[in-house]
Each structure stands twice: as structure tokens, then as C-alpha cells.
């Protein structure tokens, strides 16, 4: 056991085209730590999150998440691991448009037994309702709404509830507040942090907006851990 929630050692990642986009000597996150990862777009953020999430496999180096060595797992094992241990929140368009709010929140449970088993109450939709309420969506009618009828701010709260359901030990958020206005941003972040703190969830939060950094335990500049690339060509 390394004792870290996330630990990267001498990781190098290149796209199949050969362009190297990421080179991380050392990066680690403690359990329960809430880390703000700062970097402009195109700095290799998404690649880093893809590696931590087990979607991308670095060509060189070691990646440990919780007690698993992602670099020695197969793709299918990494997928299973991600489903069980990590909740994701993206910048926007987080939700499946044809499912209701509750169905969206419950989505991870269908793919991961571990998360389904970690539910406190036997009733999954009650837990979904609790999370939605904790994240500021207290209107009971909202559960049955179509997600396309929600405002962007509401959609991000639903996405956060989905990331948190079934208590994954790690939540990774990729610019979840960029599409929100300033008031909503802090409001959203405060509720997310509360929920993470209550359950001891490790939070890796990526943003280009330094104004939010103060709310976190620690701030890491991606430039500092990824020295390789001045302007790496990223896909997005």
C-alpha cells in the first residue's frame, strides 16, 4: 500500500500519432484530499484525467489508484475499476438526454455492483433523492423531469449527484463549473465539497479558473508537473 489515493510515477503518454502530450514525473493525491488542478486548455489536463480514470494507458510509468495498479490491469479491468471507484463530472452535456433525472443519477449502479452495494439505504431512488436535495435540487417534482428541460446549473447538480451515488472513493471533476455563472459556481462547489467531506471522498478538480482555488486543500499547476509541453496539440 502506498497510502495515496492517486499516485503517478514517471508517466509518459503519447497519442498513436507519436505526439507526446503528457510527461509527469511525480503526482500524488492523499485520501480525502481535495485537490485543485489548474491549467489552461490544451495543457494535458484531459489526458491526465483519462489516465487516472483508467481510460488511457500511458506508454511509460506507473499509475496507482487506491490499491490498484492501473498500468498492470487490462482495459476491461480498468473499466470495471472506474465504474466501481470513480465518479466523473464533466464540463457540460453530462447527462443522457433520454433518461429522467433519477435514471441519470442511478446510471452507474447498473454497471457497477460495488457501487450498488455501497448504497446506505436499500432504496436506490431514495438515495438519489437525498443526493439531489443535498446538492440543492430540493423540488421533489424534479426527479421525473426530462433532463433536457433543466437549466445548465441544474444539469451540473444532477451530474454531481450521479458522480457521488454509491460512494465512489474518488470523484474527478473536469471543468464542471465553466458553464455556470459566478454565483452558481461557488454555490455548486460548496455543495459538492460538503458532500465529499461528509463521506471522505477524494476530489480531483480541474479548472482554468484560479478564483476557485481557495476552497481546496491544495492547488497543483499542471505546468509544474507536466514540464514537457509548451503547446501540446490536444484532441479537443
Amino acid at each position: 500500500m502506498s497510502g495515496f489515493a492517486i499516485q503517478l510515477d514517471n508517466v509518459e503518454f503519447s497519442w498513436p500519432s507519436g505526439t507526446r502530450v503528457l510527461e509527469v514525473r511525480q503526482f500524488s493525491v492523499e485520501p480525502r484530499e481535495r485537490v485543485f488542478l489548474h491549467g489552461p486548455s490544451g495543457s494535458g489536463k484531459s489526458t491526465l484525467l483519462g489516465i487516472v480514470g483508467g481510460i488511457l494507458k500511458p506508454q511509460v510509468g506507473q499509475v496507482r489508484v487506491l490499491d490498484a495498479s492501473l498500468t498492470s490491469l487490462t482495459a476491461a479491468q480498468r473499466d470495471r475499476f472506474r465504474g466501481e471507484q470513480i465518479g466523473f463530472i464533466f464540463q457540460m452535456f453530462n447527462l443522457i438526454p433520454y433518461l429522467t433525472v433519477t435514471e441519470n443519477v442511478l446510471l452507474p449502479l447498473g454497471f457497477s455492483n460495488g457501487r450498488a452495494q455501497r448504497l446506505e439505504s436499500a432504496d436506490a431512488s431514495a438515495e438519489a433523492a437525498r443526493l439531489l436535495q443535498a446538492l440543492g435540487l430540493s423540488d421533489p417534482g424534479i426527479a421525473k423531469r426530462r433532463v433536457t428541460d433543466l437549466s445548465v446549473g441544474q444539469q451540473q447538480r444532477v451530474a454531481a449527484a450521479r458522480a457521488l451515488i454509491g460512494r465512489p472513493p474518488i470523484v474527478i471533476a473536469d471543468e464542471p463549473t465553466s458553464s455556470l455563472d459566478a454565483d452558481m459556481r461557488t454555490d455548486f462547489l460548496r455543495l459538492l465539497m460538503n458532500e465529499c467531506a461528509t463521506h471522505g471522498t477524494t476530489l480531483l478538480f480541474v479548472s482554468h479558473d484560479m478564483a476557485l482555488a481557495g476552497m481546496f486543500d491544495r492547488t497543483v499547476r499542471i505546468r509544474d508537473i507536466n514540464p514537457a509541453l509548451p503547446h501540446p496539440p490536444e484532441h479537443s
Binding site: 480514470g53 481510460i55 482495459a75 476491461a76 473499466d79 470495471r80 472506474r82 465504474g83 466501481e84 466523473f88 464533466f90 452535456f93 453530462n94 447527462l95 443522457i96 438526454p97 446510471l107 452507474p108 454497471f111 457497477s112 457501487r115 450521479r162
Partner: peptide, 13 residues
């Protein structure tokens, strides 16, 4: 996008 969301919540290929 739908596929990417599904993968992020644990759907395997």
C-alpha cells in the same frame, strides 16, 4: 457523447 457518458459511469466497451 452518449457513449462517452456511459463509459464514464462504468460501461465497458
Amino acid at each position: 457523447r452518449e457513449m462517452a457518458i456511459l463509459r464514464s459511469v462504468g460501461a465497458r466497451p
